[in-house]
Amino acid sequence: MAFVAEPLAKLIAEFNKLPGIGPKSAQRLAYHLLRSSEEEARALAEAILAVKEKVKLCSVCFNTTDCDPCSICRDTQRDHSKICVVEKPSDVIPLERTGKFRGTYHVLHGTINPNKGIGPEDLKIRELLSRLQNGIVSEVIIATSPNVESETTALYLQQIIKPLRIRVTRLARGLPFGAELEYADDLTLGQALENRQEF
């Protein structure tokens, strides 16, 4: 890009590497930053650096945190007998937003994917099992996404946790709010019918 100043071209190229950002969006973001004040640009740069320098994984639940153990694992008001198992750190956010769960989490950092050669040893499953040995945990809630890889992970977890005599539950399946019944797939609709509740 000889017609664009070298630092600007470099910024565009860096933005372009981000997920969901194409060349046009990268260009738009770079020009926006160029127009914005120096404080704004510095704040963004510092925020990016801080993420890389300060954010690490919690040694208990493996969620992203800036202090170890994370605020959820340290919270004595939370129910430590319940562990909600999720695939990735970003899955904790929507579950916390519901305000319905006061237990703790465990982040697997992926799912078992036989066709890609990702097995249990590539995930934080061994760490989950060692958490379950302390005798405090009475329930493990499997909150994996409803797809084939996550289903494999959930079934595998169920198989290895059941012998420990710990209750294994999973999130209910059903229709999302605002969805149209006409377009619901048979699997979801079938499970919504099976798990119907008293009204």
Binding site: P114, N115, V148, E151, T152, L155, Y156, Q159, D185, D186, L187, G190
Partner: peptide, 20 residues
């Protein structure tokens, strides 16, 4: 969907066979 092989997907071994 004609068949989503629901019973197969409920069993770890059979699901692995299906993926194979």
């Amino acid at each position: 969907t004609i068949n989503n092989f629901l019973d197969l997907k409920k069993d770890l071994w059979r699901l692995a066979c299906g993926l194979y």
